[in-house]
Each structure stands twice: as C-alpha cells, then as structure tokens.
Design a binder for these strands. Structure first.
Length: 716
DNA sequence: GAGCACTGC
C-alpha cells in the first residue's frame, strides 16, 4: 500500500518522466533540464539519480541558503531518513552531513569555496546546478569550472536546471541536450496598460500602482494583491497613499462588497525586521483583502501565499559597476521579459490569477529578453583572484558563458597588482595566495594580513573587517523623534578618526553587553547583521591561525583610546590606499588622489551617514573610504581620516607603470575582440532600454534632479 | 540639499 507521501510524489508533473530522465542522465554527461516552478525538479530529480545511478554522490546547488536548507529537509523527509544522514546540506557556518551522505544541498558559494582545494570537484560524481537562470556571479563561474571538469573527468555527470526559455544559451555553451519538464501553474491573465512609455512611467509608477490597487479592490473578486515596486521609499509612499484613499472609500461602490469589506497593507523589503515580515504570511480574516508591497525580494527569495493579483510596475533597482570610477551606481531600470514573466507567475501559484502590467505590450517587446548577468555588472577583483588561485592563469580567456568586459578584467588585475596579490606578469604572489583563502574581498584580506604582519592589531582588524563584510547594521528609524534618539545613543561610540574605529567601538560595546539583542534594540543597531559579523569574525580568526598569522590585540578596553588608532588606520591603508581622497579647502568635496594624478577629476562626497560629517569640516584633509555609491551623487561610504604619511609609502606600487600588462592586453584584445563585438550587439540592446547609465554621471545627476522636480510639481 | 535593490563565501 502506498503511503500519502508516495502519492504526493507521484502526482508531481515530473513523475511521468522519471525513467526517461534517468536514461538521459545515463546517456549524456551534461544535461540541461528546463522546468517551471512546481514541477518538482529540485526535490525529485536528485532522488531519481540516487535510485537510478549506482554509486552516485550528488551535489545540488542553490543560490540562497534558505533554499538549500529547506530542500534538504524536504528530501530527507521523503526518503524517510534523518537530516545529515543520507541527505545533508552545507552552507556557510553550517554543515549537516556525514560520511553516509550521498546527496548534499549547497549554496553556489559553498561549492565554489570547496573548489579552491579541489578544482575538479572530485568529492562528487554528479553535480546539479539549480536555478541556473538566476545567473549569479557564483553560478557563472561554476558553469566554466564544470565544463572544464567534465573534459577531465568522463565519469562526472552535470545537470543544469533552469526555469527560463533562454535555454539555447545553455545548450550552446555546454553542447548538451535539453530535457523539458512541464510545470504546474495556474492560468494568469495579463492586463496591459494601453500606451505608455517607460520614460513617462518612471516618474509616475508609484501613483499608478496606488490607482491600480484601488481599482482591483473596487472591482475584482476577493484575493490578495502583490505589488512589485523598486525600493523602501517607493513602498512607503505607496502604502501611505493607498491607506489615505482607502479611508475615503465608500464601500457601496465596491463591486464585491459582500465578500470584500476591508483591506490591510503590508510592506516587505530585506531590511525590514523579521517580526514585521511574519505578518505577511498569516491568513487575513474573511472579507479582508491583503495588499503586499514588495521589492524584488518577492520575485525569487520570498513566497507570499494566496496571491491572486500581481501589479508589476516594470522597474527594478539594479546595481551597475562602473570600472572607470570604481563606483557602484544603483539605477532604476526597466525589468527584463524574463523578470516580467516571473513576476506574473506569482499570481498563479494557488489558483488562476491576473497580472496588471503598468506598461504596454510594445514596451514589453522592447525589454531585453533576459537580465544582464551579474558578472557583467560587478567588480571582478574577487573572481579574478579566485580563478588565479585555482590555477586558471589566463583569466581573460576563461570560458565564461557571458564574458565580462575585458576592460573590467584589466582593471581587476591592475588593482590586484596594487594590492600585491599578483606580480607584473599577472602571476599570483605568495601574498595573493593567502589573501584568496579569506572569505572577504581582496581589499579586506590585505588589511587583515597587514594588521598581523606589520601593525600588530589583528584582533581589532578581524572585528572591523567582519563589520565591513555585512550589510548596513545602523537602523534608520522612521520617526524624527527616534532618529534624534538614535543619533544621541550613537554619540558615545563615535571616534573622531571616523567610521572604522567607531565600528570597533560599537562591536566591543555589544560584546560587553553579552551580545545582547536588547542592547541592539536600545541602541538602534540590527541584531541580525551584528550576529552575522560575529560569525564572520570567528571564521576570520581561524583563517588567520591556519596561515600562522599571529593574533595581536591592542587593548581590552571597550572604547579604543586615541593611542591605538594609528596601527588600525595604517592596516586599513594597506588595503584601501587606492581610495585616498583629499578634501578641497572651504568646500565639502573630495578629490581622489590617484585619479587626479592621472588627470581625471571626479568629485566625491561624504555619505550623510558617515561619522565624519559630525566633526568640524575644516579639520578634514586626507581621508580613505571603503566604497563609493552613486544614487543621486557619488557618496563615499565608511570613511576615516588619515595622515598622508600613512599612504605615501604605498603609492610606490602605483607609480610603476604597468607596461608589461598593458602590452599583453593589447595583443589579447585583438584576438578576442570579434567575440566581444558579437556581445556588443546584445549589450547595446540591453542598454538602450535603460533610461540612465552609470557612465555619464553628470548626465545622470541632471536627470534625477529633473525627475525629482517633476515629481514635486506633480504632488503639488 | 539627503540617504541602498537582492544574494553569497
């Protein structure tokens, strides 16, 4: 007799294909499996392999930690085994697996890390990359590595699992057959806006979302609504406007007033405290319509149950890295067709649904078919160091599924040379080898090594580096009263040298509170973020010990005395001396030192959150910063005051003209340029949809100023 | 004139 779980498994859309799938996996070394959400591929296919392929040791990668854990638990349950026995998982800080484990769920990043000591991934003989269509930086690197490993290990099986229709690219890259599995989706009606250009929509989409939500509430049958917006500010503005309109709503005008009697509005974005997020998943009382206003977090990471209507504004905030200025620009850009389809799909999870697209059909046709992969819009410093570490000497000709801009690779190599991680021939140095073993950016690992070898403050630096590796841990309260209170509380942690030592003071105070959650709440810090930093800190300490780098502590005092600042700042300079800026006298603008030597003039500003904004501006002269982010103007995030003497010695490396490398790039570029041009056609198309580009920052600034102006005008 | 989308080691 079959049990209930068995029946459930056999009712999944993938089940009828079980034998065919096993046969295909046996026959081909690489297989691309395409299937929509709900097909059961993540949980079933690994089990089919365990049943059908003898001696299989399977790894399944997921882009997110939570996905790896929950898939592992599901499969363990279905196989009737304890987690960590036959089925396990492995993510950062957490490994639940034993020598009996035949099936392991990992994050892409974890598998990539294990490749540093084992580039052919010999501990597994079957590797499945799930959610490949998301094209994270890590999956893209894994694509290349797996293709390489397949050539050297004929017995290795690789399965690429993807949800999109953009499968030809995978098919071509891997030269592998495609196996398509139907999904289980309910029908979703698509409603288009009649005629509207992205340009117009961009300044008005918040208001249009408000109107659409009210329209749905007034005319549609009961069912919850999910609205895709771009960010926290837009969400809060939208929520306020909806609630204002709802107050004046006359329910006699509501078509389904017998079953629609009220509404409740929930915002959801990643920095929201977890408690507030919980409410979204609870069922609303009968007659109450739930309106969820979400960022892109709801497109992949978070599933809100019971959604019947989706409102898609057509935009997303996306990071773009500009290699010339090393700035990250966060831009509001039109989404891709693939993203639009995914958003729409959120309406058909439990029953038939509807999607209201705030753009017209023609605008959809103009959207790029897929999102620009992350590897083409990120700093490649860490990736290059990683590839060198695992023995790929010619990073420029590494087999990427979508090659990054060669200039981006060149910039990355140059910066690694500045850090001493590669020599003039682009070979990994001893220092670079050690740096690549730290799970932080090369800038930060350079600081760590220096803090031990040169300045004897490695304990303190582990704390600072850990804090620099986590998301923003400052809570920005909504009310002005709480903002003032937060400001007052933080006063006691400030160090006049700037943010880095201030961070250290905050962490030490938290440590002395016994890592208390209440302390975090009272002082307006995110407990979750500080806790991650605590874990990273201990991971860094053990990496230091592994490389026989001494742990020195400057002081056990909670607040760092001024006499201890120098070694900390000097260590930071060894990683961030390229980010040295000088303040212009009498103004609040800063000039990057290296860029001005090269005759470029970029202006930078202090981020409004920096502790350096609190001190007398005339006392500022030389400053180093962690990174620059461009929203409306280029702001330096996390800054500290330094003496020029601290960085002066380090600039020796920069003055050496990188002749050898420049020459090499000239010849290499000629060879790969045709390929690059081919890429270009596609990329231009992608760019043409974007209203703004990070390249011309002046133009960007002008445009955003105008948009704000128009919006203010509209609100009046 | 002023603030950041989402992941991961």
């Amino acid at each position: 007799m079959k049990n209930k779980m068995q029946e459930q498994r056999e009712s999944l859309p993938i089940f009828p294909f079980k034998q065919d799938l096993i046969a295909a996996i046996r026959e081909y070394q690489i297989l691309v499996v395409v299937g929509d959400t709900g097909s059961g591929k993540t949980t079933q296919l690994p089990q089919y392999i365990l049943e059908g392929i003898p001696n299989a040791i399977v790894a399944v990668t997921q882009p997110r930690r939570i996905a790896a854990i929950s898939a592992a638990y599901r499969v363990a349950e279905e196989t009737g085994t304890k987690i960590g026995d036959l089925v396990g998982y492995s993510i950062r800080f957490e490994k639940v697996a034993s020598k009996n484990t035949k099936l392991q769920f990992l994050t892409d990043g974890t598998l990539l890390r294990t490749c540093t000591t084992d580039p052919l991934i010999s501990q597994f003989n079957c590797i499945m990359l799930d959610e490949s269509h998301e094209r994270s930086l890590d999956t893209d690197v894994l694509f290349g590595l797996l293709k390489r490993a397949c050539k050297q290990r004929p017995e290795l099986k690789v399965i690429i699992m993807s949800a999109t229709l953009d499968i030809e690219k995978f098919q071509d890259f891997f030269d592998a057959p495609v196996f398509s599995v139907p999904g289980r989706m309910f029908e979703v009606d698509v409603l288009w806006q009649k005629t509207i250009k992205f340009q117009t929509l961009k300044t008005t989409f918040v208001q249009r979302c408000v109107e659409t939500v009210m329209h749905i509430h007034k005319t549609e049958e009961p069912g919850d609504v999910l609205v895709f917006l771009t960010g926290q500010q837009e969400i809060e503005r939208c929520a306020k406007n909806i609630l204002d309109l709802h107050k004046e709503l006359n329910y006699n005008l509501v078509r389904h007033r017998d079953s629609v009697k009220d509404m409740v509005v929930y915002p959801i974005y990643s920095s929201l405290e977890t408690l507030q997020q919980k409410a979204i998943f609870e069922k609303t009382p009968k007659g109450v319509r739930k309106i969820v206003l979400a960022t892109n977090i709801a497109q992949t990471s978070v599933t809100v149950p019971g959604i019947r209507y989706v409102v898609d504004c057509g935009f997303v905030k996306q990071k773009m890295y500009d290699h010339k200025t090393h700035m990250d620009a966060l831009l509001v850009v039109p989404i891709s067709q693939a993203a639009a389809t995914q958003r729409a799909g959120r309406a058909g999870r439990t029953e038939n649904g509807k999607v209201y697209r705030l753009y017209c059909k023609e605008a959809f046709q103009e959207m790029s078919p897929t999102t620009v992969p992350e590897i083409q819009r990120s700093s490649l410093l860490g990736t290059i160091l990683y590839l060198l570490k695992i023995g790929i000497k010619d990073v420029l000709n590494f087999d990427f599924i979508d090659a990054p801009d060669p200039e981006l690779v060149q910039t990355g190599l140059k910066q690694l040379f500045y850090l001493g991680a590669v020599d003039k021939e682009n070979r990994l140095t001893h220092l670079g080898k050690i740096m690549s073993d730290f799970p932080v950016s090369p800038f930060l690992s350079r600081c760590l090594i220096s803090s031990s070898q040169d300045f004897q403050c490695s304990d303190e630096m582990c704390t600072i580096v850990a804090l620099l590796s986590v998301e923003d841990f400052y809570i920005q309260p909504r009310s002005e009263k709480d903002q003032a209170l937060a400001e007052e509380k933080r006063q006691e942690f400030y160090d006049s040298s700037g943010d880095h030592v201030t961070f250290l003071n905050i962490y030490n105070a938290w440590r002395d509170s016994g890592y208390s959650q209440d302390w975090c709440r009272d002082n307006f810090f995110h407990y979750r973020a500080l806790n991650v930093a605590k874990n990273i800190r201990s991971q860094l300490l053990s990496a230091m010990k592994q490389h026989k780098l001494e742990i020195y502590s400057l002081t056990h005092k909670q607040k760092i005395p001024p006499s201890c600042r120098q070694p900390i700042l000097k260590s930071l300079c060894s990683g961030f001396y390229m980010n040295t800026v000088k303040k212009q006298k009498g103004k609040t603008v800063f000039y990057p030192y290296i860029a001005s030597l090269e005759g470029q003039s970029t202006l930078l500003f202090l981020s409004p959150q920096s502790s350096l904004t609190k001190i007398d501006q005339d006392r500022l002269d030389w400053v180093i910063f962690n990174d620059v982010q461009f929203v409306t103007r280029p702001n330096m995030r996390i800054t500290s005051r330094i003496d020029f003497e601290m960085v002066k010695v380090l600039f020796g490396r920069v003055d050496i003209k990188h002749h050898k490398m420049e020459e090499e790039f000239q010849t290499i570029r000629e060879v790969i340029d045709p390929m690059h041009n081919e890429e270009h056609g596609l990329r231009n198309e992608v760019h043409s949809n974007q209203v703004e580009r990070p390249v011309d920052l002046v133009e960007l600034k002008r445009k955003s100023a105008r948009e704000r102006f128009l919006e203010r005008k509209k609100q009046k």
